[in-house]
Nucleic acid binder design. Structure first.
Lengths: 110, 110
DNA sequence: CCCGTATACCTTGACTACCTAGGTATTGCG
DNA sequence: CGCAATACCTAGGTAGTCAAGGTATACGGG
């Protein structure tokens, strides 16, 4: 358990979640697992961060929720990307790319 | 003035400041200007973020301060990197590299 | 000579977002 | 039957950034 205390995650969680939904609707728990797996367990998505993030984005109209069933036959809330969310993802991705490039330019050896 | 509201900056400011001090002591104002310039004005370092960050890092023993004079003959507090700060910078740089790679891998097109 | 701008520092209060640490309920397996 | 994994939810704390104020001084232009 690397308790790296991801203060770095700040501001990127939304984009990561939105990205996860591009390939189709997913429920919260699956979103978290997917991100963790996709980053080789480097990023840990805490549920106390995830669910508030989902409500936030739902309020903003970036995603829409619907009750359904998970692959394992359990009740689950399926989140779907809206057109607005798609635009938001594009914007945040662009912003991330520029930010990451800037920080890397300063931090990493030339 | 892109008010991108850098929630992304969270967690990276310390490393950026430490990095600025590698080439020698600098005062706060100069640190901010240097980072902004080095990132083509993409990152804006607000003074309300910078000074608290400097105190934080001084308390943690990563930097040391001393009153002196700026290049323009004004009173200025010069910050110097400590060995502990150098180690911290190395750690945070490593952490940033891994984090950025992970996020980019998810976010940016394959 | 005075006044505005840039330099240089500092602080308060609000806000946002994340984390910790709890909780509920259900499925399926040993 | 009990336990682990799944799936969701929330309250409270905390940390870091920002906005918006403030002080003081050097220097150049009008």
């Amino acid at each position: 358990m690397p308790q790296e205390s991801n203060s770095l995650l700040h501001g990127t969680l939304d984009a990561l979640v939105l990205k996860t939904l591009v390939t189709g609707p997913r429920h919260g728990y699956a979103i978290a697992r997917w991100i963790e797996e996709a980053t080789d367990e480097l990023l840990q998505i805490e549920e106390g961060s995830l669910y508030p993030a989902l409500y936030r984005m739902e309020r903003k109209g970036w995603i829409e929720a619907e009750w359904g069933m998970s692959e394992l036959n359990r009740r689950a809330k399926l989140y779907r990307l809206t057109p607005k969310g798609r635009k938001q993802l594009a914007a945040e991705t662009e912003q991330w790319a520029r930010f990451a490039a800037a920080v890397s330019k300063v931090l990493l050896p030339a």
